[in-house]
Design a protein around this nucleic acid. Structure first.
Lengths: 119, 119
DNA sequence: AAACATATATAGATTATATATATATCTTAT
DNA sequence: ATAAGATATATATATAATCTATATATGTTT
């Protein structure tokens, strides 16, 4: 199994933002920082490679739009992207729950070496 | 800031297990798999480097014990390790909450370009 | 004794994300 | 009008956590 990462990737969060409305890069950085209370403070150099990859995967498509005298590159969720959002959200929930189970801990699921071994 | 990783590392989960009782490697693998309902299925080759690093960081210390006719290497939480467990747990909670905030989304924290810019 | 599970170990690959840097445009202050 | 600074996008390279593959030794079952 390739790594496929733990439970979340930043792409999940970006997909979620784009589900709500089309955004351009800097807007995503600011929105993420605000909503996460500064836990996610992406640098541009972190964001753009991720966006480019999402585009390559066909989760988003882009268009340029003139807004207030400035051309900006907007990202828009595709059908594929919506599916990804569902899948990654489900994965995150399962992952977060698993960690909770371990952290609440005690009791259930303790290791008992199987019968074959006398220990 | 070096990467320092997202929100959880496997070390958090291992610290939690060792808070409850001393364990040897394979026992941790099995216990983690059970408690997480197979979300965390560590391979030995994943676990041992992490344990060795935790030992280097002085979060755990080891001792060998004869158990049912077999020598096994037990890992035990140190004082430092207990502090780490507290810190990493707090970090995880903050991180998980931040993701929840983004996924629940809508409304709060939307980007408004500041006044200087007319857009 | 062979086959298989348990148990520990290490080198090297992979992946997500971070850092550093470049660049162009637009805004504000001088 | 121009310099300084913020906005906006981009890319090459580095780093850290984890995975894969492999090795080895001992214990167990057939």
């Amino acid at each position: 199994m390739p790594k496929e990462n733990a439970g979340v990737q930043i792409s999940l969060l970006l997909l979620k933002l784009l589900e709500e409305k089309d955004m351009y890069g800097y807007e995503m950085i600011a929105t993420l920082a605000n909503r996460s209370e500064e836990v996610f403070q992406l640098k541009a150099g972190t964001l753009y490679p991720i966006l480019h990859n999402m585009e390559k995967e066909n989760w988003v498509q882009t268009y340029e739009a003139m807004a207030d005298g400035r051309i900006r590159k907007y990202y828009q969720l595709t059908k594929q992207g919506k599916i990804q959002l569902q899948e990654q959200t489900a994965k995150w929930k399962k992952y977060a729950q698993a960690i909770q189970n371990v952290l609440e801990g005690e009791g259930k699921g303790d290791y008992e070496a199987d019968k074959r071994c006398t220990f």
